[in-house]
Design a protein around this nucleic acid. Structure first.
Length: 369
DNA sequence: AAGTTCTTATTAC
DNA sequence: CTAACGGTAATAAGAACTT
């Protein structure tokens, strides 16, 4: 979905349209901590973007409309949209399944994959061009249906695998040369056919490759690698030596290779909560009241799923953003709230004893089993 | 020496 | 001139610790 949270807010309040809208923390409340969750394209013109500290966003555009995150609303809209997307799976199992079976994979509130490879199978008599036309019509129909029912625009990327589909989707939005939509709104659709993958990938920046973030990009740039074309130069073993296991994946990804299946069921492996204080503190009242709340939330999240835990990790971030963790693995897995409370508090207490700095954030995470 | 546990780093949304 | 910087979750790697 295009600028999802902000677009929903525009829909709910049409007078916001055409004005910069920033969804995230309130820049005027408390100490103005927090970040931008999502903003619309008008706000992006001022240099505002997701994950930016809200204090900076405010400086860049104090007149923007700053809105709190209304997660319940976004969740509901998301559910509606996901239901629409699921309908684009075939009603019956296709005759031939070579690679992926038709599947739907929700990645986040506003992102999902649909495996439509069945459309291409067992149709040797049909011209490839015609099949791609069919796929384009399908994508357009999906976009239109979402717009009709939810009044929200979306962007679709299509490719021979998840990697290319995702990258195509990114490149179908404004800020890209490949973007076909004029003006500042996304609402895009980009299809990359198998024989276009090389030409599509090579001129892109290394950071456009999912998995390459700022840290990895900096290391690559340091050795003169900026474009995906250049990323194809080092050997697989060289990349492994530099980046470990993920380095080997970069080698494949740079060549457009990605065999990860579209999978519907994602198994949750851990549950956690963390809270940043309004102001850095060492007040035990505040710290432990907050921590009690966190413990209860984690416990609820865990037991509501019928899980037990065995490993407990406490997170503590001090003034200056220095972050540390302490963890404890129990002999046996349990779902005892009292055990969670006492073990978690023991770990937090250690932090407080051994580090005299003011505390910015505390958190708790349990590995579930 | 091998298996576990602990801690940090990085990424994504 | 530099800092500013939320929450949830996964995964990898290496160090530290046990058995």
């Amino acid at each position: 979905m295009d600028y999802f949270f902000a677009q929903i807010e525009e829909r709910e309040n049409p007078r916001f349209k055409g004005k910069p809208v920033v969804v995230g923390a309130d820049p005027r409340q408390g100490s103005g901590r927090g970040v931008v969750s999502t903003c619309n394209y008008e706000a992006r013109k001022y240099g505002i973007h997701s994950a930016m500290p809200i204090s900076i966003a405010y400086k860049l555009c104090p007149n923007a409309i700053f809105l709190p995150v209304n997660m319940e609303l976004y969740q509901k809209v998301s559910e509606n949209i996901m239901e629409i997307i699921k309908k684009y799976l075939p009603r019956s199992q296709p005759k031939v399944v070579l690679r992926g079976s038709p599947t739907f994979e929700q990645v986040s509130l506003d992102e999902a994959y649909l495996d439509l490879s069945h459309i291409f199978y067992d149709r040797r008599k049909v011209r490839t061009k015609k099949i791609f036309k069919e796929v384009r019509v399908l994508a357009e129909k999906l976009k239109k249906e979402i717009f009709k029912k939810e009044k929200l625009t979306s962007t679709v990327g299509i490719g021979p695998n998840k990697l290319i589909a995702k990258m195509a989707c990114e490149k179908a939005k404004p800020g890209s040369e490949l973007c076909s939509t004029t003006g500042a709104k996304p609402n895009g659709l980009l299809i990359i056919k198998p024989n276009q993958v090389k030409l599509f990938l090579e001129p892109l920046d290394i950071e456009d490759l999912p998995g390459i973030g700022p840290k990895t990009a900096a290391k690559l740039r340091a050795i003169g690698i900026n474009k995906i074309k250049e990323l194809k130069k080092p050997s697989k073993s060289k990349l492994k030596e530099m980046f470990g296991r993920v380095g080997e994946e970069f080698y494949e990804k740079a060549r457009g290779i990605d065999e990860t299946p579209v999978t519907s069921e994602e198994i949750i492996k851990s549950i956690g909560r963390q809270i940043t204080f309004e102001k850095d503190t060492r007040d035990p009242e505040i710290i432990f009241a907050t921590f009690d709340h966190i413990i209860n939330e984690v416990y609820r999240g865990m037991s509501s799923g019928g899980f037990s835990f065995k490993t407990i990790t406490v997170i503590c971030r001090f003034q200056g953003f220095e972050t540390h963790t302490k963890s404890k693995t129990l002999k046996e897995s349990t779902n005892d709230l009292e055990v969670l409370k006492s073990e978690a508090k023991k770990l937090l207490l250690k932090f407080i004893i051994e580090n005299p700095k003011l505390i910015r954030l505390i958190g708790l995470r349990v590995k579930i089993c």
